[in-house]
Computed example of a mutant assay.
Amino acid sequence: MWIDTHCHLDASEFDADRDAVVARARAAGVTQIVIPAVAVANLDTVRLLAIEHGFAYALGIHPLCVMRAAEGDLDKLAEALETHHIDPRLVAVGEIGLDFFVPGIDPDTQQHFYVEQLKLAKRFGLPVLLHVRRSADKLLAGLRRVGFTHGGIAHAFNGSEQQALAFIDLGFKLGFGGTLTFERSLQIRRIATIVPETALVMETDAPDIPPHWLYKTAAEREADAGQGRNEPAELPRIAESLGELRGWSAKKTAAITSANALAALPRLASSWSP
C-alpha cells in the first residue's frame, strides 16, 4: 500500500470529479494522502477534505502565495494550528519554503514567511513540508538558524547531492514524484539511487508535476487543450521508476517509502492502515 506525501486534492482541477479521483487512488493502492494548504484561504478546505476522505493534512502558506498574504495571515495560521494541533490528521506545517525560480516574488518577504512558519512548527512540535526550488541552501540556513529539529520532507527535491545529504542530516526525507520518471532527469535520478533508502518518500504533487506519460509540450497543449492531469492514482506507476533505479520490487518500494513517510510524519500512523 502507498502513501502520497504531497497532493493538492483541493485544487480546482479536481472539482468536477474529486470523489472519483479518490476512488481511483484507493483502487490503485494509495491508501493515505497528505493534503497541504497553500494559503490562509484554504486552511479549512484541506482539513475538511482530509476528514471527509480519511486522509491527512498540513497547514501553511506557500512561498508563491506570500505576495498576496498579509502579515495578519501568520496570526491566522497560528490560530488554526492552536485550534487543531491535537488533531491527529494534522501531520505537518506546510507547504512552506522558498522559490527563487518564479520571478516577481520578493525574496525578503519569502524569507520572512518561511522563518516565521518554521517558528510556528517548532512551537507546535510539528514537522514541515518544504517547497524547494533553487533555494536549498537558503532553506537549510533557515532551519539551522531557527534550530529546527522536527524534520519533515523536502518536497519535490531537486538540489545537489551535497544539499540532499544536508537535509537528511537535519532529519528530513526527500520527496520524489513525476520528475523521476523522465530519463533526462539525470541529477534527480542519480540522487534517488545513491541516498540512503531511509531518506526516500513518494509523492505526486497532483495535479502538478505530471510523469512522462502525462507530460505534453507547449505545442501539444495548445493543440489539444491542456496537460494530462496528474492524480494520486499515478503514484504506484511513478514509484516503478524508483524501484527500477534501486533494484526493488513494487512491494519493497511501497514498504520502504511508506515506512519513511511514517518516520517523517509520525502522526500519519494514527490515520493510516496498510
Rank of each mutant, 00 (worst) to 15 (best):
E13N: 06
D15K: 15
R18K: 14
R18P: 15
V22C: 09
R24C: 13
Q32A: 15
V34L: 15
A37F: 03
V38G: 14
L43V: 03
V46G: 04
L49Q: 00
H53N: 05
A56K: 04
G60M: 01
P63D: 09
D87F: 06
F100V: 07
V102A: 02
G104C: 15
Q110G: 01
Q110E: 00
Y114K: 00
E116C: 06
E116R: 02
L126I: 00
L130N: 14
R134T: 10
A136D: 15
G147V: 08
G147Q: 13
A156N: 00
G159H: 01
E161N: 06
Q162Y: 12
Q162H: 05
A166L: 13
I168A: 05
K173C: 15
L174H: 09
L174P: 14
G177E: 01
F182N: 15
Q187K: 11
I188Y: 14
I188G: 02
I194R: 14
E197I: 13
L200A: 03
M202C: 00
I209F: 15
W213V: 11
A218Y: 10
E220A: 08
E222F: 02
E231W: 08
P232A: 07
I238M: 01
E240D: 10
S241N: 11
L242P: 11
L242S: 08
L245Y: 09
W248K: 04
W248F: 12
S249K: 13
T253R: 09
A254C: 12
A261H: 01
A261D: 04
L268A: 11
S270G: 07
S271P: 13
P274W: 00
